[in-house]
Amino acid sequence: MAEAQCGGECATVKGLMSGKGRETVKEAAWSNNVVAVQILGICSVLAVTTRASNSIAMGLALMFVAGGSSFIISLLRDITPKRIRIIAKMAIIAVLVIIVDQILKAFYWEMSLALGPYVGLIITNCLVLGRGEAFAQHNPPLLSAVDGIATATGYAGVLVVIGLFRELVGAGEILGITVLSPEWYPRNQFMILAPGAFIALGFLIALFNHMRGETAVE
């Protein structure tokens, strides 16, 4: 899956190294958006965006994990032995993900059922370890946390837009409230299924590139 590309691609994001604060946020969430620009984390994007509420929950979970892990990784960056740094980072990420999963199961049961295995799979989401390697490894804790949260916000933003679109077209609802009456709007089940997600994502990337002024790629 996407994580295989991470080692090379995520680490070469040079623009972020010199960025501070606002610049970091803009770069992480917008111009270098993990989903729309780097095309990472697609698996979970396709899986959980059948409804906007799922997208929001997944986005929040990822913001917590990415922000928290970047902060801790950065805090420990000088004392972590280089040879075991990846596995140490994985352990930090895994602990945070399991905490999120347990809290969902305890207090947001319905949401935990709706997200299914994808909360646990945040561990393998490229963006989390990617930011840990590319940014938190070389920057102070707070700035790293900002970068992690901003990157996850970019991810969450894409999730919510696709979630809103699929829910509206597929179920005629927005956040569970019926807006297109079933009397005259037949439900388009196709949008709820995985191919619909690919199409929605394709449109979104096209729109994104248009807004960023991107033309043909060499």
Binding site: I92, I98, I99, A106
Partner: peptide, 12 residues
Amino acid sequence: AAGLLSGVGGLT
């Protein structure tokens, strides 16, 4: 890590 996880596991 183990301590944190068993703590959260026990609480929830």
